[in-house]
Amino acid sequence: MTRKTALLHPDNPHQGSYDLLSLASKHPALKPHLIKNPTGQLTIDFRSPESVKELNRALLRSFYQIEHWDIPEGYLCPPVPGRTDYLHHAADLLKPLNPKKVQALDIGTGANLIYPIIGSQTFGWSFIASDIDPVSVNTAKTIVDANSVLKGKIKAVLQPDQQSYFRNIVAEADRVHITVCNPPFHSSLEEAQSGTERKWRNLDRSRQKRNGIKVNDANKNPDQKLNFGGQKAELWCKGGELLFLKKMIRESQDFSQQICWFTSLVSKKDNLLPLQKLLTRMKAKQVKVIAMSQGQKISHMLAWSFMDNGAQSIWVSEHQC
């Protein structure tokens, strides 16, 4: 079972095909979900939420020493390789600064807590994991409490103001080296549902081609749930990804001396130019756009800082732990 990996970060451990037999040996609950494709290769049914969740559990156990991980039904179950890729690119931003200890902030961590898990286990970062959804925050706290390797490294907190990103989370005395975010990219429930149906069509077409079946959209069930789920705040917000990130950029200026690097995933390429123009108007000193492979599509990481290289180096040296 081969995944598109052309643009994966060279340090990403999830290169090439999943070794499903190895994963199942470490996480036996994955074994019942293993199936063979027409060529006889092992795979899973990526249309099945249960199969995708068990694959995530297997990956988290095998690569990140996470023994207990679960999310409520219907909540976002993100692809681990793509999220790992984002964090490796984020880590590259900090390498020239060589901080002794990194404090990171995950905006909209979700019930899955995926960025703090990978970031703390791979790079030894400490995380503030914020979300506006109480269920997500409570689930994230449960994951931390259930895994000794996460205790003392991740603090899950509720953002009480749905219009804020850093306020109420980053105190005046706090210093954050880097922020990460996977924003809701749809602008309405209808758009999110349309995106769900489009992904199902793509999954069905891929399956039909692999099986030598003539592609036919008529057999698709429009009521099927997307395999990775997602709640309202995880999938859509008023104004979609573009407005969400414009608001984040404007607020980020108020934290220009407390946060070294701001970053976010940008799913829609057309949103990059208006965001870059806004950052110019906001007088960001550094702006970077990094292309990444996210499953079967190309996404981008947008990174910005209100400090130049010299100011960042001074900032890090003054706030070493």
Rank of each mutant, 00 (worst) to 15 (best):
A90L: 15
L242K: 02
P96I: 08
D254T: 11
R201N: 05
I71V: 15
D133A: 10
I118S: 08
P81C: 06
D308F: 04
Q320T: 05
I114L: 13
F244A: 09
L7M: 06
T2A: 03
Y165C: 04
L279M: 07
Q286C: 06
A192T: 05
K36R: 14
A104V: 13
S299W: 12
P28Q: 00
N271A: 05
P13T: 07
S188I: 09
S299M: 13
K36D: 03
S206N: 07
H27R: 07
I178S: 08
G239R: 09
F46A: 04
G74S: 10
R198S: 15
R167T: 12
M307T: 05
M282K: 05
K268G: 01
Q15E: 01
E251Q: 13
K155F: 04
I132S: 11
L265I: 15
W125R: 04
L93A: 06
Q258A: 11
T196H: 13
S17C: 08
Q162H: 08
K26G: 09
D85T: 12
P134K: 02
L23M: 06
A284S: 12
V102A: 05
G82C: 10
L87E: 08
N202D: 11
Y64W: 14
K36N: 07
H27N: 06
G239L: 04
F63E: 10
K247C: 03
F166Q: 10
Q41W: 09
I178P: 06
A58T: 05
K288H: 13
Q257H: 13
L76Y: 15
R57K: 15
D217S: 09
I128Q: 07
E197I: 12
T280C: 09
L76R: 11
V102T: 14
L243R: 12
L272H: 03
T84L: 00
A218Q: 13
G295P: 04
R83S: 07
S188P: 14
Y115M: 01
E67S: 14
E190P: 02
H319D: 08
T39E: 14
